[in-house]
Write a protein that binds this DNA or RNA. Sequence first.
RNA 1: CGGGGUGUAGCUCAGUAUGGUUAGAGUACCUGGUUUGGGACCAGGGGGCCGAAGGUUCGAGUCCUUUCACCCCGACCA
Length: 432
Amino acid sequence: MRRSKAFIPTTKEAPSDASLPSHQFLVRGGFINQQGAGLYNYMPLGKIVLEKIRSIVKEELDSSGCIEVQLSFVTPMALWERSGRADAMGKEMLRIQDRHQNPFVLSPTNEEAMVELVKNRVNSYKDLPLNLYQINTKFRDEARPRYGLLRGREFLMKDGYSFHASKEDMVREFDLMEQTYKNIFTRLGLDFRVVLADSGAIGGSGSKEFHVLADSGEDTIIVCDRCDYGANIETIDSINEDDFNEFTYEELQTKNIEEKCSCGGTLSFKKGIEVGHIFQLGTRYSKELEANFNDENGKPKPFEMATFGIGVSRLIASVIEQNHDEHGCIWTKSTAPYMVNVMVSNIKDEEQSSLGEELYSKLLDAKVETIIDDRKERFGFKMKDAELIGFPYTVIIGKELVNGLVQIYDRKTKEKLSVSKDEVFEKIMELI
RNA sequence: CGGGGUGUAGCUCAGUAUGGUUAGAGUACCUGGUUUGGGACCAGGGGGCCGAAGGUUCGAGUCCUUUCACCCCGACCA
């Protein structure tokens, strides 16, 4: 992409209503813009990042045997009445009417729709297990949308639903998804923890959340520095959060969580952004909606189910909450909108310009996602812009070229590495 | 949904207590020139139904009523 032809409206100032770093930088960097409360447009850079995350999610799910579908976003109210959630979901569910005054809702989640899809199409234990997912828009009419992409009303979420002939098999899939989710967040380059979540009314140990560690996280989680143990403090009731921060590990032992962390490691509190949630549903929906399969004896049984969610658009903001500095975004390699920014300091300089063009095409030929900053702007302006957007590497072709040198600027370390113009391509290929 | 706040140029905001020429600044944008290693400088220029609707008044950005939108603190949530 040529920066001179791109649509990347960056700004020096943040809108006054953006408080979090991810919100400010994503808006200032020209990734997104706000359309209304909790409603966002994705501009080209935002769209690229969104698609990158989406495809990583898809690749990992597919390789674990999940199958992608797409459900209608607008669903008849009757679907929700059958499961009893028309009332239970309350005002969070946005209700609309069509031209015949028939009631519909903008789907906030899709348990009912997915069960209806499978019901009477999957009739035998021989067809199980089955794990279907979609990556689609959701709408939840939040009482108070905030924090930019972290809590929008309209958002992109991956929701998956698995169907099993037995509880054991459902648990097997649950564990497989836990591993798959770990693979996804690792590939995204995120520092995250898996924690026990509040299982709510359904009970059991069947709910785990995936949290990206970030100071701005809305949840407080307890993690062990030695073993895998982690828990959302929501799981430990009768203690309020403020008190909790005062406790030492020994004190925590008296709070009934010690048996879950027998390794002797130190427990500490972290702020986390919930980006994934996996849940053992059992037969709650299949019973309600009379979705059965025939077992080995030809007897109808309700599906054992589990459900798996990932907040895809929220992940964009999470990457930045975890990776930014005072200058702007610092994308991980797998999420960066462009890996390399070829910055020609002075485009009027023939030599700089032609080396930039040459490097640009070479990188494109090598399938490196590259953008060339060929705008008629000053050095400082382009550097600030590159830092705000957060390309992992910017090749600075500028005044050192007279000595045959260019610089590779590493956004994360802020180091500038001087390399010969003849070796810059190889060096870049080595770094990425 | 409770409590608080803000709506004036694309963006950040003055101006509103006490009504009174043609509504301002910075930034962004356009033109020309200078400049080219950290959002540079000079000169000129375009851009506003002062959130919306009513009202008071000779006169409303400013006062009154209604309404809408957005933000912040809570309660609720991927």
